[in-house]
Amino acid sequence: MENDTFLSVESLSFGYNPGRLILKNINMHFRRGSVVALMGGSGCGKTTVLRAIGAQVRPQSGRVMLDGTDVHKLDRAGLAAARRKIGMLFQHGALFTDLSVYDNVAFPLREHTNLPSAMIRDLVLMKLHAVGLRGASRLMPAEVSGGMARRVALARSIALDPPLLMYDEPFAGLDPISLGTIAHLVKNLNAALGATTMLVTHDVAETFRIVDYAYVMSAGEVIAEGTPDQLMASTDPQVKQFLNGRRDGPVPFHYPAAPIAEELGL
């Protein structure tokens, strides 16, 4: 089981201010080749987990083991090498706005390889073909829609065929067609690359269709984990509220405040 784990997050705690932890004792394990979701409401710390895995933030305690290496103990060069094993899709694509679609996808190849330009061209066109945007290679990021930008970013994140793919809210703000397309690509690329995929999202329906396993977070803690079927059968009121999208429950509708009668002077 241990050798089968590509990525593990062990007893991870993190906070920007020492007294206020955003992540509290997080434990997660990602099997090679699996598609795993990290779910939870806005602000529960999902993206911070991604940032901790990518060593963009340093945890107060705990560790992140990526393919047998603790990423927070690496020096600058080691970290750069470890990050080449990760393909990350940012929430809004994070395309380089001064580069064309083609140059965006070619960027990691040009930075990390000495391949001749003809070979880079073939690789870029293959990646763009995989996301259905070979015909858009000459466009600038400002000329493509949000869904297309997300697909270009996806092509860029798989440019070096990384063994770990991390997606930050890949479905947020997309129309149903784009959303379906991205979900299809996430699943297919995982299979095609033999990669381990981590999906940070709060879109329950679309996510449960494509993942093997999921973690549910709330207020910086993992409150539940399991396969989609196990989670749907959960009796935990907080998990049920999140998965069924109920307005009120353990997570209250109202932000803490004085009683309204008192506030209005009634």
Binding site: G54, Q56, L79, A80, A81, A82, R83, R84, I86, M88, F90, Q91, H92, A94, L95, F96, T97, F107, P108, E111, H112, A153
Partner: peptide
């Protein structure tokens, strides 16, 4: 570039 996470994206590419 920072606000659009382009710098973070570059960092995550090992650049």
């Amino acid at each position: 570039m920072k606000a659009g996470e382009q710098l973070a994206a570059m960092e995550m590419m090992g650049v």
